[in-house]
């Protein structure tokens, strides 16, 4: 396959950035999207150009490090798939592909397609945990958990923190990310004691980071590689409003 890539290039946080066009030839349909970019980068290095910087690590769809907006869709149009798991067989030969970084004020561009997502860590710091020092835990079987609750908690807990939800949201909201963690812990008995304080602290931190508000468009869950459901946001709202009543 031969492709034309239009890639966002930005040398650093203060650079204005621009789209640059590259041709990539002899792309195999079995390549992953990132392997296709590897090929481009290998060529750029030999030519003495700066290769396109992009974040990636596990390349098996679980670390959440990779992420780019491909043809206007976070992680590309293939549903429930991270960029690293997107394969070139889903593109037409001769296609033009635009590649942009996640765009959100709380995710400033570091370089090219690399953005700073430390805002997510700070949201977790605000309360995305159960306070339990090592060694103090009771026997794992002392508290049974309804299977349905455990399964739903797991569904929410599969969030990989990639930030696609923010990238796709017309408001630049981090609600799905925040709600996923709140829901995960809110559904389990272990998460109950801190349930309301957690919801309040995390939502307030999300605001403080400068993310937009949720308008329930559902764009986030549509691009989420793990399919985190939208009703996690309802649960977050419920916990948050309850916390504010107290």
């Amino acid at each position: 396959m031969n492709l034309t890539l239009k890639v966002w290039r930005q040398s650093g946080p203060t650079d204005a950035g621009r789209m640059v066009t590259y041709k990539v030839e002899d792309v195999s349909p079995d390549m992953s999207f990132l392997e296709m970019l590897d090929v481009l980068n290998e060529r750029l290095i030999i030519e003495g150009d700066d290769p396109v910087a992009f974040d990636h690590d596990c390349r098996e769809g679980i670390c959440g490090m990779c992420g780019m907006v491909i043809n206007g869709v976070a992680h590309g149009e293939q549903r429930a798939t991270t960029t690293c798991q997107l394969h070139m067989r889903h593109f037409e030969d001769g296609a033009t592909i635009t590649i942009e970084p996640w765009r959100a004020a709380p995710f400033p561009v570091v370089k090219d397609l690399v953005v700073d997502r430390s805002a997510f860590d700070r949201i977790i710091q605000a309360g995305g945990f159960v306070s339990v020092p090592a060694g103090s835990a009771p026997d794992a079987h002392s508290v049974p958990v309804r299977k349905e609750d455990a399964d739903s908690a797991f569904d929410a807990a599969t969030c990989i923190g990639c930030g696609a939800c923010v990238a796709a949201c017309p408001n630049g909201s981090a609600s799905l990310f925040t709600a996923a963690k709140i829901t995960h812990l809110s559904l389990l008995p272990q998460g109950q004691p801190e349930r309301l304080t957690r919801a309040k602290a995390m939502v307030d931190q999300m605001d403080a980071e400068g993310f937009g508000g949720c308008t329930n468009t559902g764009e986030c869950t549509a691009v989420c590689p793990k399919g985190i459901p939208l009703d996690t946001i309802a649960r977050m709202n419920s916990d948050y409003l309850q916390a504010n009543k107290k």
């Binding site: 090592a134 835990a137 026997d139 049974p144 958990v145 455990a150 399964d151 908690a153 797991f154």
Partner: peptide, 16 residues
């Protein structure tokens, strides 16, 4: 024990 207390959602059976 530690992981369960932290809220790690291990697989469970119907009995909980």
């Amino acid at each position: 024990d530690q992981a369960v207390a932290q809220g790690v959602p291990f697989a469970r059976e119907y009995g909980g």
